[in-house]
């Protein structure tokens, strides 16, 4: 098969949009349903995230006065494109993309693009709430990226390569455990969930940084978030769950691990209240910093 075709298939079909979008909606529904059940409610119907997406596609787009039309409409597209391209690099079983040297670096870069898009979306909207949300998002990304990046870089150090397939095939050891915990530490903030949801504190700053977005662009931002959930959970599974020689078993294990991680993160989000920005920042630089130091030390000791 031609290399260009394999990239296109990985982006558009598997593990790209065609499968990631329904999987992301499934994960969103699972989180909402779990929160509802934990609060003693019935919760949304199974197709709710899909209905939300389709409804937003059929709505009018209101562009605020004085906002540059091009960048306003381009940001959600870039966000979805980047997060899907990142997912296409993850070596899930059956992914047609060949492993490149240094694709870990590309993956980490692409994973920052949706965050950047959200920050820019808040600033270009000319809404004071959007700008506050963007500022918080940007500051929080400085905090949670410490443990997040260290977890992946420690695994690259352990595997001796910046290749995703090498990370996946690295012999299981203590570093996996430590780096996995460090990764999980960063996960709630990356998913914008309680207690690190200060950037989308709807009771305080009305909404998150897409406050001025409506219609299809908002739908794309929601889709980007759904695909990002799949990306984060599957990245955790691929890097930190030991692989078996059978691809189909691997796939099932990865999906189950993803749902399990989401369940744990949702449980934490339901049980905790929102931290202030300074508290969240301090948490990540103190506890995230300690976890990062221990993880890096473990890779160097061996």
């Amino acid at each position: 098969m031609n290399t260009v075709w394999s990239y296109l298939i990985a982006f558009a079909v598997w593990p790209g949009l065609l499968f990631a979008a329904p999987l992301g909606w499934l994960e969103l529904w699972f989180m909402r349903k779990l929160v509802a059940r934990l609060q003693g409610r019935r919760g949304p119907p199974f197709f709710q995230p899909f209905f939300d997406f389709m409804k937003l596609l059929g709505k009018q787009t209101v562009i605020p006065r004085g906002v540059s039309r091009g960048i306003f409409l381009a940001l959600p597209l870039v966000s979805v494109g980047a997060v899907t391209a990142a997912l296409a690099i993850v070596p899930l079983p059956g992914n047609p993309v060949p492993s490149l040297p240094g694709d870990v670096v590309l993956l980490l870069y692409l994973m920052e693009v949706p965050v950047l898009c959200e920050v820019l979306a808040g600033y270009v909207s000319r809404s004071i709430y959007g700008q506050v949300a963007a500022m918080r998002e940007a500051l929080l990304s400085l905090a949670y990226n410490l443990p997040f990046l260290v977890a992946i870089i420690a695994m690259a150090q352990e595997a001796g390569s910046f290749r995703m397939s090498a990370l996946q095939a690295a012999p299981y050891g203590i570093v996996h455990l430590l780096a996995g915990v460090t990764f999980l530490l960063a996960l709630p903030a990356r998913m914008k969930l309680n207690p690190f949801s200060i950037a989308n504190a709807e009771h305080e700053i009305v909404a998150d940084s897409h406050i001025e977005y409506s219609g299809p662009p908002l739908a794309l931002f929601k889709l980007s978030h759904a695909v990002e959930l799949v990306l984060l959970t599957e990245l955790f599974a691929v890097v930190f769950i030991p692989a078996t020689p059978w691809p189909l078993v691997n796939l099932l294990v990865y999906l189950a691990a993803g749902i399990l991680v989401l369940g744990g993160v949702t449980l934490l989000a339901t049980a905790t209240a929102r931290l202030r920005l300074a508290q969240a920042f301090r948490f990540y630089w103190v506890w995230g910093g300690i976890a990062s130091a221990v993880t890096m030390a473990a890779t160097l000791v061996r």
């Binding site: 909402r32 509802a36 609060q39 003693g40 409610r41 019935r42 919760g43 949304p44 119907p45 709710q48 209905f51 939300d52 409804k55 709505k59 209101v62 709807e202 009305v206 909404a207 406050i211 001025e212 977005y213 409506s214 908002l218």
Partner: peptide, 22 residues
């Protein structure tokens, strides 16, 4: 939005901004 009536069953979400509302 509380457990007793739980409007989320009908897909209802409360949004603060009119831009997101139907």
């Amino acid at each position: 939005l509380s457990p007793r009536y739980d409007a989320e069953q009908l897909g209802v979400e409360l949004h603060g901004t009119p831009k997101h509302a139907d």
